[in-house]
Amino acid sequence: MPGERQPDIQISVDHLIKRFGAFIAVNDVTFDVRRGEIMGFLGPNGAGKSTIIRMLCGLLRPTSGRAMVAGVDVALNPERVRQSIGYMSQKFSLYGDLTVAENLRFFGGIYRVPQKEIAERILSVVEMAGLAGREDSLVSTLAGGWKQRLALGCAILHRPPVLFLDEPTSGVDPISRRRFWELIHELSDDGVSVLVSTHYMDEAEYCNRIAMIDQGKLVALGTPAELKNRALPGTLLLVECDEIGHAIELLGSAPGVRDVAAFGNTLHVLVDREAGQTDRLIAWLAAHGIAGARVRPIEPSLEDAFVQLVTGNREAA
């Protein structure tokens, strides 16, 4: 998929630094986001995710470094950037004392959505967000998932090419979350670049690429699969066979094996990253009396990778 997309850059962040007094909240961060790409920000509390997003929206001035959004330098021309972005802040920030339709009309007016299109666009956003029939409900009376979808609706009413979503699904039930992510993918299919921060590992898996951030630093950047592989010093293999206890001993002394761990009645074996490891293990077990073993590579979880990378970063610091 990514190969089919045009490679033009919608967000370009270059050695971005933000200090609050002596404290460095964002420390020399550099990355790009392409058109239609979903970039996930993953990082512990206080990592600096919101601060980066706020700088990209022109809400905070970078201490140094450069940020280009939709082809415009944010620090030089924040007003032009603002027409090209949609923003969902971490804290819900629509008007609770206005109705769904009133909030949408307000933002439609602020972004100067063409008068003759506004009704139609509101209708489609209401439909997309599953808010049909609730147009006249006060926003404060809506449940969390509805509020989040409405906030997304308000952010995309003016069809911005770039979308910043700061923890859009925190505190929302899993079904609403899934629904929300379907919407994000639809937008991305339409060519919208999405920068989304999250704490949820499963959500991070939905992203095209992930930027792992810790203590203001960009710790790792890549596709979910790349990050998982990079985090572990080898390939993870799942082994199913008889005589598990014996197999652990055998594999522990096998050449090229770094680690063996029992996982229920299967084994997770970490081996050096080399071709033919699967066959080599099967042969090794057969040669030592355990025949018919099934071995296949498995993916480490993103959570493993995350913990690994963050601890690695802190040890290095």
Binding site: R82, Y87, S93, F107
Partner: peptide, 12 residues
């Protein structure tokens, strides 16, 4: 109420 953060991000 936190509504300012969003308002500031718009072109108003």
């Amino acid at each position: 109420r936190g509504t300012m953060e969003l308002l500031v991000s718009t072109p108003i």
